[in-house]
């Protein structure tokens, strides 16, 4: 269950059911079935990558990487887990791979807070506050918050995905949430001040 009270996968679109017939045709290399899978899950993949990375080009690279892997591994997909969950895990892993590869560009990666806002603008006006706050986190901190709080991954899973200990994940999450919590009143106050003028 996500923090917004909705099932996590619905929030990100990964919980959509994939028609077994489409899956079967996709396994046989049917391009229309591939199209259908992308139409169903492409947006969810892009959204997850975008929320963590905050950069459209990087998020598109993740989606491309994920779908190339999916098309490669469809034949081996046994269906032990729902297709969407499998895809979500692949997307999360690919996104974390991007964070790892960009490690040298992020000297503050172990800090949770960035001073500057992210590059992307929110798609929905009501999301501005949450999105703006999240984009002030470092990508790693953002990944931990989103994957744990919204996508339902456990600290153990996050630790494995990041190649770190559970305590790393727990610590980063706690500090990130604290920063977010602390930042909200400040922003609210700023808005109130602006409204007064």
């Amino acid at each position: 269950m996500g923090a917004d009270g909705l099932p996590n996968d619905i929030a990100s679109g990964f919980a959509q059911i994939l028609d077994p017939e489409i899956l079967s045709r996709a396994r046989r290399g049917d391009r229309k079935a591939h199209d259908a899978i992308y139409q169903r899950y492409g947006r969810a993949c892009y959204t997850l990558a975008m929320r963590i990375l905050g950069q459209p080009a990087a998020a598109e690279d993740v989606v491309q990487e994920v779908f190339l892997r999916v098309l490669d591994r469809l034949a081996g997909f046994r269906g032990d887990a729902p297709f969407g969950a499998w895809l979500k895990r692949m997307t999360a892993n690919a996104t974390i791979d991007v964070l790892r590869s960009a490690r040298h560009l992020q000297p503050l990666e172990d800090e949770v807070w960035l001073d500057s806002l992210g590059h992307s603008q929110p798609a929905v006006e009501q999301s501005v506050d949450a999105w703006s706050l999240l984009m002030r986190l470092t990508p790693r901190a953002r990944a931990v918050v989103l994957l744990h709080e919204l996508e339902g991954y456990t600290h153990l899973e996050l630790a494995q995905m990041f190649g770190q200990s559970e305590s790393y994940s727990k610590s980063l999450l706690a500090r990130s949430l604290q920063k977010l919590q602390d930042a909200r009143p400040g922003r609210d106050a700023a808005v109130e001040v602006e409204n007064e003028h």
């Binding site: 959204t47 929905v124 009501q126 999301s127 709080e149 949430l177």
Partner: peptide, 20 residues
Amino acid sequence: RPAAWAIGMRLPEFEPDPAL
């Protein structure tokens, strides 16, 4: 705390480039 900061602040969904 997660509920405190997240409830009512739905994160945006993003639409990938149609050319992707």
